[in-house]
């Protein structure tokens, strides 16, 4: 058995036994992956983005492969917040892992309602998606301006005492400014990056591969962008940063942590290997044991030129 005791991280007032969290939208509500390993092996789970009422999502195709990555445009298909609270959360709470509810709305009012409903549940943290590129209303519309991001942060902040983590879009001029706007309105943490907006076209038919025409790029292709943005944001705010975007190995996790992330989400890599969250965790433990360090000591340890 690998000694996992060096991986603990306190993040926005919540203790994670290790920093590896499957990213929202790549892991459903977790159940499916119990067929591979116990969810209790994970630091936490960021569940599927959940809206006020059930959403059917976009027409297929919803996925396209790209060099070292993929585009998706699921369009927030989910059964709605009431279903999540009644049917999914009780099961998740039987697991020894941090449960992060990921929420999205078409309007500020929808964000407020969902956050209020979650406030009286035992979710550990709320991640607020203001960066989904695949829905027509809301989503990224709020996340691409400081005013929009600040507005949703303040609405959710007032609706709940739970730790609030704002999930940021990379499709902006200055992500550090957006992060600062969220911090100023009382966000406990930020997570980044959501996907980069992209497009592929089938040259034989002239049709975009995705039915939504455009979609979010993720996977190793975006990793350097994620590292850069995490570094910029970590230098701009005092609240903790959850890093994600193309993390596929324990080495990637170390790298994004050195850039300033104290929590790491793993998304697209799960499609390539469903075991990757537990493989990364083991790799981090071996690394820390070998170097005789605590993992938290590498957060922000990059030595810029």
């Amino acid at each position: 058995m690998t000694d996992m005791s060096r991986l603990g991280i306190d993040f926005a007032g919540v203790h994670f036994k290790n920093p590896i969290v499957p990213a929202s939208g790549t892991f459903g509500y977790g159940k499916e992956f119990e067929e591979f390993y116990s969810l209790s092996e994970l630091g936490g789970i960021s569940v599927k983005g959940t809206t006020g009422t059930r959403r059917n999502g976009n027409l297929p195709p919803r996925i396209a492969e790209t060099p070292s990555g993929m585009l998706n445009s699921v369009g927030l298909q989910n059964p709605g917040i009431d279903h999540f609270i009644a049917e999914e959360l009780p099961y998740l709470k039987t697991k020894d892992t941090v449960i992060i509810a990921n929420i999205a709305g078409s309007t500020a009012e929808e964000y407020r309602e969902i956050a209020e409903k979650l406030d009286s549940t035992d979710v550990d943290m709320i991640e607020v998606n203001i960066s989904c590129p695949n829905v027509k209303a809301g989503g990224a519309a709020f996340g691409v301006s400081c005013e929009g991001a600040a507005h949703i942060t303040s609405i959710v902040r007032k609706a709940t005492k739970k730790p609030v983590m704002m999930k940021l879009s990379p499709n902006v001029t200055s992500i550090a400014d957006i992060a600062k706007a969220c911090e100023a309105e009382g966000a406990d943490a930020v997570s980044l990056i959501n996907t980069l907006l992209g497009m592929r076209i089938d040259i034989r038919t002239g049709r975009p591969i995705l039915h939504n025409n455009v979609g979010g790029l993720s996977g190793p292709a975006v990793f350097p962008v994620a590292v850069r943005m995490v570094w910029q944001v970590a230098n701009a705010v005092k609240i903790p940063v959850c890093g994600m975007g193309g993390v596929s190995s324990w080495e990637d996790a170390v790298e994004i942590m050195m850039a300033g992330a104290s929590l790491v989400q793993v998304g697209a890599a799960i499609f390539n290997d469903p075991m990757v969250p537990v493989k990364i965790t083991k790799g981090l433990a071996d690394h820390c044991n070998e170097k005789d360090i605590m993992l938290r000591d590498i957060v922000g340890a990059v030595k810029p030129w």
Binding site: F27, G28, E32, F33, N58, P60, P61, R62, M70, P274
Partner: peptide, 16 residues
């Protein structure tokens, strides 16, 4: 249908 995770976690292989 074009598929992602293969187990029901990502919801990309939607069919009507």
């Amino acid at each position: 249908e074009r598929m992602g995770c293969g187990v029901g976690g990502c919801l990309v292989c939607a069919c009507r």
